[in-house]
């Protein structure tokens, strides 16, 4: 699939934009943390779309945010 672009997102409704990003983000997160992928993706979708698009292109940025989300999730569940 071609990379998700800001112009592709711009033509969609806000909740559909998150859906489009989530569909791209989920497999990447699933590869890192299969059991928590749904929750981590849900958390990360609260981030601005422009930053989410950057994370889709940058594994380092994505990994850093996934680790942050994991820490928050573990703190929440404790």
């Amino acid at each position: 699939r071609e990379p998700l672009s800001a112009s592709m997102l711009a033509s969609a409704l806000p909740h559909v934009q998150k859906q489009m990003i989530g569909d791209r983000l989920y497999p990447l997160i699933y590869a890192l943390h299969s059991e928590l992928a749904g929750k981590i993706t849900g958390m990360l979708l609260e981030i601005d779309n422009s930053e989410l698009l950057h994370m889709l292109e940058s594994p380092e940025s994505l990994n850093a945010k996934v680790e942050e989300a994991l820490i928050m999730l573990q703190a929440h569940q404790a």
Binding site: H15, K18, G22, Y26, H76
Partner: peptide
Amino acid sequence: GSSVNWPPEFHPGVPWKGLQSI
């Protein structure tokens, strides 16, 4: 607490409702 529903969970191919309040 009452926050057991956080965070909203994403499922591929299922319409995302995490931001329904917008």
